[in-house]
């Protein structure tokens, strides 16, 4: 079996002042994460406060954009099938995403992937991943 990836229309994500840097990063081809200024833990999705220790100051760091597929589910009974997934970045945080630009039937847990940015409808691009 094979199921070729196809781009689908993606609604623009809503942007708030505390996540604007993330979306600006996507537009510049960079995947940004937040790190706590106090306990140094990384987290995702990005927040101005740390969900682990509760500290109110976090800073942006740039991810290498590489990781492994933690889990996925190819959603088939829709107009344009897509691969819904969670990828664990090499920095140690796991993020919701899609797997793109490959045969969706060949996707496997544990596969190495790298970030790619896919356009949205009138908004910044969003981070997806493709086999490395």
């Amino acid at each position: 079996m094979s199921l070729a990836y196809k781009d689908r229309k993606i609604a623009a994500p809503s942007i708030s002042p505390d996540t604007k840097a993330f979306w600006d990063g996507c537009a510049a081809g960079k995947l940004l994460l937040k790190q706590c200024e106090k306990c140094q833990e990384l987290h995702y999705y990005p927040r101005p406060s740390c969900p682990f220790c509760g500290h109110g100051e976090t800073k942006w760091i740039e991810s290498k954009g590489t990781g492994t597929i933690y889990t996925y589910s190819v959603t088939r009974r829709v107009e344009v099938p897509y691969c819904f997934a969670f990828v664990t970045l090499d920095e140690g945080v796991t993020m919701m995403t899609n797997i793109a630009d490959c045969d969706l039937d060949s996707v496997r847990i544990g596969q190495r992937v790298r970030v790619v940015f896919k356009p949205t409808d009138g908004g910044p691009p969003v981070p997806m991943f493709t086999p490395a």
Binding site: R8, S73, F84, N98, V126
Partner: peptide, 17 residues
């Protein structure tokens, strides 16, 4: 929501994963 809706997060694939 901004970090999930673009990826087609729906009930059935949230259990599929």
């Amino acid at each position: 929501a901004p970090f999930e809706l673009p990826f087609g997060s729906v009930t059935v694939n949230r259990y599929g994963v």
